[in-house]
Design a protein around this nucleic acid. Sequence first.
RNA 1: CGGGGUGUAGCGUAGCCCGGUAUCGCGCCUGCUUUGGGAGCAGGAGGCCGUCAGUUCGAAUCUGGCCACCCCGACCA
Length: 491
Amino acid sequence: MAKNVTREEDYSKWYNDLVFRAGLAENSAVRGCMVIKPYGYAIWEKMQAQLDKRFKETGHQNAYFPLFVPKSMFEAEEKNAEGFAKECAVVTHYRLKTDPNDKTKLIVDPEAKLEEELIVRPTSEAIIWSTYKGWIQSYRDLPILINQWANVVRWEMRTRLFLRTSEFLWQEGHTAHATKAEAIVEAEKMLDVYSEFAEEFMAMPVIRGKKGESERFAGAEETYCIEAMMQDGRALQAGTSHFLGQNFAKAFDVKFADKEGKLEHVWATSWGVSTRLMGALVMTHSDDEGLVLPPKLAPIQVAIIPIYKSPEELTLVSEAALELTSKLKELGISVKYDDDDNRRPGWKFAEYETKGVPVRVAIGPRDLAEGKVELVRRDTKEKSIVDLAGVEHTIAQLMEDIQNNLFERALKFKNDRIQKVDTYTEFKEKLEKEGGFYLVHWDGTIETEALIKAETQATIRCIPLDSPEEDGVCMVTGKPSKFRVVLAKAY
RNA sequence: CGGGGUGUAGCGUAGCCCGGUAUCGCGCCUGCUUUGGGAGCAGGAGGCCGUCAGUUCGAAUCUGGCCACCCCGACCA
């Protein structure tokens, strides 16, 4: 087996190779679009299940809206349309026909041109708000709390598996409210759902913040976000929640009568996370040997590998392994007993390490004779020989320990790489040398932000929600500033 | 859309300068031996050398067009 590229050697190649090697996804025949493979999709399904549960617990319902948006509808909210215009796939025809010059080929039938082009949704605000118009007349119709699981298309110039693909899977929540305050509460509540999910399930610490003007969602009044730090010190936007004000209600003329019978435009939010979270998961925990998965999202939590020389030994080992398998399942732990005779133990060890299975159990005649088994935890690679009797409880405990350890490890990594700097010179030096996040004073102007980006590639990731008020001066222009913002290179 | 690069077996490659129908590794198939960290040996299958045209007795190799993909920039969750 060829030696794998390490994170140190080439982080970007390490990531790509790993996504492929671990069986998460691969590039498809369609440029920029990926095939999500069964193991990768199983992780995504775990994410979906958990998020979906939280959405429902917070009062939302799922629905589904069309893939296509008529152009006239798409352009109704100007800022939103302008923001996405450059990356839209457009349907212009509805039929093919046999090429008269080559009977084996098909051509677009010029007679089947659509009167109005259809835009493949890059996001669904337009189609959803045009629908909400028919659903909302009175304050009694509000709030509307809807989520949809869908695919969207954004025609990206440069793509990377999970992090940026032309088509991606996501969920998008779209809510309608009677008051501004209620909509803001909603946007903030969903940001909390995202940050809790990231930290509790993905074991990925995040910074909760607001976007500055230049990074705000097209058509939003306020964009809240969670930003995570990857192992190379770069920032990754892991989820966003937008307060849309009355922009879409005005664009689609959605009004409601309040208790006094007065007509007012509806207040909106939208919020989403995507398959990009898969990339975040990989780049937060994995190592040079392969994937490292938090137990709460691992499709296989425990792999049991039999060691044997003869059929008799296999019978003996299998008996113990199958008993342990059922005990683990009773505790709600997902187990794979891998008795495939075509692969040798060493191969299996390497395979489950690559796939990030949190705990591996090896059972062989040598240990069995003493009533023991070998446990190896993926996060620390620690090996231990423990009593077979009651080992299911040891493993259950390990699941919690690993989940916690991964979070603590990632948290320490992040905290060690966030620093306050006060001069632009120091910032440039440190960013170049150490990477990571920087808490700096900024004058709040787009011009200064653009200058920093042009000179250092770093962007203002967010204004942290827990950022304390602090008088200071912009590190670039020396103009006054009231709080620090997070500056980093981003994915 | 600008700048650079690459197309040879399922994957990764050698050969190309200096023309003679293709090398090696992984994987795959069969058999035996193996099985506590990606097994060993033996045998075997698999390729119109991206594509179209030109030069030539003869093209993976030289020339030209086309296509595809990759990398770097602008855009972006």
